[in-house]
């Protein structure tokens, strides 16, 4: 009974934190959108509008109401997914975002998969062979991961693997010859191609995906391996590890079943944060790779001063980002019976 109540309490605390953080984010985007620009009315009616047109537009936009009422209106709009119309594409922003988001998701997901599948074993090896080469490798990866600009690494990757070695496809999501060959179902091009049995397209799409995903994956790898190392060093020094050895457990079992299982809770947080970081990093990466995702949508809108699109994209990234934070906290609880 008591534990059920405490679980409910924890969940409600998490949800409250999530709600407050969301509110904070929306307040910031609201302020950026409504308060900072010179005059949002002018953006709608143009510079030379007569005063009565101007006033009408002002009232229509609700700008005559007090700021807090405007904020409530804004919250309502966001809840309904109304981010206004994009000046650049003249579509509703929400439709644009729905169209481009899967491409970003595809990129960040593969990047995280690369980071997790290489980073965890490497971090474990670094902790087990502390002071030896895997440890040094993780340290170097960490240093570079925190020192290399993601967009520059992307450029260098293109230069080497595409232009010089020809191992991968170039910028874009798929070669021009394969454009629009498959109908969009999931929005994830490779999946769509496989669903239609277009193996050639899937292969081509993969050759375009692998380089940007690897670039993002490198940063994920640097972060995850470094954190795995420090969690594992901590776990391996605990008394229960000695107990496992006393029981005659093999080193493999001690490391993977006992130590890593205990590091799983904080690692879940790290992985979720790294995923969120990649979504953000995709803004710069997509520009380099002409990747038609949310990041490029935001940056392209930026240059056109298309504030509806920019703020809509910011809110969506923010929601995903904060949700991942929430998800990480919940996962950490699931993996650790002490906090359940």
């Amino acid at each position: 009974m008591a534990s059920a109540r405490s679980t409910a309490k924890l969940v409600s605390a998490e949800v409250t934190t999530f709600a407050i953080t969301m509110l904070g984010l929306l307040l910031v985007t609201f302020l950026i959108g409504r308060v900072i620009p010179i005059d949002p009315v002018l953006a709608v009616v143009g510079d030379r509008a007569p005063p009565d047109v101007y006033d009408k537009a002002r009232i229509a936009l609700g700008l005559d109401k007090p700021l807090w009422q405007q904020f409530l209106t804004y919250l309502g709009q966001v809840a309904r997914g109304e981010f206004g119309t994009s000046v650049m594409t003249s579509n509703p922003v929400i439709l644009d975002i729905k169209r481009v988001f899967p491409a970003t998701l595809e990129l960040a997901t593969l990047g995280t998969l690369i980071g997790v599948s290489l980073g965890i074993p490497l971090g474990v090896a670094a902790a087990v062979y502390k002071g030896r080469w895997p440890d040094n490798l993780v340290r170097i990866l960490g240093l570079f991961g925190y020192s290399i600009p993601v967009f520059w690494l992307g450029l260098m990757g293109l230069l080497l693997f595409y232009a010089h070695l020809g191992w991968v496809g170039g910028p874009g999501r798929v070669s021009v010859a394969f454009d629009d060959l498959v109908t969009t179902k999931t929005g994830v091009l490779i999946l769509d191609a496989i669903l239609e049995g277009e193996w050639e397209v899937a292969r081509d799409a993969f050759s375009h995906l692998i380089l940007p995903a690897s670039v993002l994956g490198f940063f994920s790898l640097a972060y995850i391996s470094r954190m795995t190392r420090s969690f594992m060093i901590n776990e391996l020094s605990q008394a229960y590890i000695l107990t496992a050895r006393v029981k005659g457990a093999s080193e493999t079992r001690v490391i993977w079943r006992h130590a890593l299982r205990n590091a799983a809770a904080p690692l879940a947080t790290v992985i979720a944060l790294s995923y969120a970081g990649l979504l953000e990093g995709s803004v710069l990466t997509e520009t380099i790779f002409a990747w038609p995702g949310l990041g490029r949508y935001i940056t392209a809108s930026l240059l056109q001063a298309d504030m509806n699109a920019v703020l809509g994209g910011t809110v969506v990234v923010g929601v995903v980002f904060i949700s991942l934070n929430l998800f990480a906290d919940i996962m950490a609880r699931v993996f650790d019976p002490r906090t359940r």
């Binding site: 605990q238 008394a239 229960y240 000695l242 107990t243 496992a244 050895r245 006393v246 029981k247 005659g248 457990a249 093999s250 006992h258 299982r261 205990n262 799983a264 993996f335 650790d336 019976p337 002490r338």
Partner: peptide, 24 residues
Amino acid sequence: RRALRGARMSMVMQDPKYSLNPVM
């Protein structure tokens, strides 16, 4: 030696609070 450990010789540790694996 490891095969002997746990099977034919073993050890009771000091503090169960730290010596038991918290997630099993």
